[in-house]
Amino acid sequence: MTDAVAPAGAVRALWVYLGASPLLWLLLTVGVYAVALRLQRALQGSPWANPVLLSVATLVAVLAATGTPYATYFDGAQFVHFLLGTATVALAVPLRRQWAEVKAALAPAAITLIAGNVAGALVAMGIVRLWGAPRELIASIAPRGVTAPVAMAVAERVGGLPSLTAVLVIASGILGATMATPLLNVLHVRDWAARGLAVGMAAHGIGTARAFQVHPVAGTFAGVAMAVSTLLTSALVPWLVPLFT
């Protein structure tokens, strides 16, 4: 903040008052996200214009520029944060809606989902471990394949850093949604159900949104894979992390 503007004193006094109130940070969280969402729609839903990534980057820049500590910001943002757990419980509803389709391919889907979730967690933890990173980073990357609120809750339970996990989850989603079509074409996977399952599992919600853009069958299976992976990863990862730390 500079003193170049004439009424700087008054602005500063107002800032000191508002900057300390939860309302300002609650409003900024919701407002910045709404603008980021519009931007992504304007770019035809490009996975690179991820609204969560854009919002986090914008808010971090605002906090850094104004010298606001994260704790002050979180006093306001916690009201949004609280709903994460409630939304996680709500994931049971779409899973119930798609249950008939899941049941029809239950055994192959279950084996694939277990193998894929375990393999993904082992590869991620193995690389970070071999690189010599500290244990909280190993615990933070382990649940990177599932939807953010669940991954963050798992990270918290296994001694990781939930906010770092959130960023890694978003990165996985964007990368997975972007690499899906070229990777699966190279592997000659033409079954839409298999393609959807793979994307929903590797890239959670962002991958599922992408799968629905490509083919409805792929989208349905991606949604199912995301929901079941959520349960599997949170059940399996906490037992796998101690092997690496």
Binding site: Y33, L37, S55, V56, L84, A87
Partner: peptide, 9 residues
């Protein structure tokens, strides 16, 4: 998406 912005920050 909105719900994990606070933690992401």
């Amino acid at each position: 998406g909105l719900l994990f912005v606070p933690a992401g920050v």
